[in-house]
């Protein structure tokens, strides 16, 4: 076994300090070390997008990074979005448009769409399909996800409007 490394990672605003093996994937760090199981692990080779989190604000595959690489960085996961009582507007739109069936891909889809909608608050259907091209969903056929994003775009005031 290789040496352990001390890491300090800020996840959803909370600083976590752990000792990790360098080979520990960021996805497994979030789930097993921190108990944040909202980040799902599908293919573990960068194809399915279920493990997408925000790394310093950018959407990344957490199965293609090592936890040691997150030392000193900011990670946002689906747990940081809304609460059961108060869903994030994007989650609310997913609820209303029935964009969730089995739910396995949903955390990755949400974390992919969050920065996308910030950058592009009024996307076309084509742009939405491009944006979620790196997230596999085997239930919805994507149509309801696209509907939800269009709904969210209506509901979420763009920053310029505030």
């Amino acid at each position: 076994m290789s040496d352990l490394y001390e890491v300090s990672v800020t996840v959803n605003g909370t600083v976590y300090q752990r000792s990790v093996e360098p080979r520990l994937l960021l996805s497994d760090f979030l789930r097993h070390e921190l108990g944040l199981t909202g980040t799902h692990v599908g293919c573990e080779h960068g194809v399915c997008g279920a493990c997408t989190v925000l790394f310093d604000g950018e959407p990344v595959r957490s199965c293609l990074m090592f936890a040691v690489q997150a030392n000193g960085h900011q990670v946002s996961t689906v747990e940081g979005l809304g609460t059961m009582e108060e869903l994030h507007p994007l989650q609310q739109a997913f609820w209303e448009a029935h964009a969730v069936q089995c739910g396995f891909c949903t955390p990755g889809v949400l974390m992919t769409l969050l920065p996308f909608l910030e950058e592009n608050p009024t996307p076309s259907e084509e742009e939405i399909r491009e944006a979620i091209s790196g997230n596999l969903c085997r239930c919805t056929g994507y149509q309801h996800i696209v509907d939800a994003v269009l709904l969210a775009a209506e509901k979420m005031p763009s920053q310029g409007d505030c």
């Binding site: 960068g46 997008g49 997408t52 790394f55 950018e58 959407p59 990344v60 595959r61 293609l64 990074m65 992919t112 996308f116 491009e130 944006a131 091209s133 790196g134």
Partner: peptide
Amino acid sequence: MPKVAFPQVRSR
């Protein structure tokens, strides 16, 4: 560039 893999892959 937009044809290179997926948005999440191009971030890294």
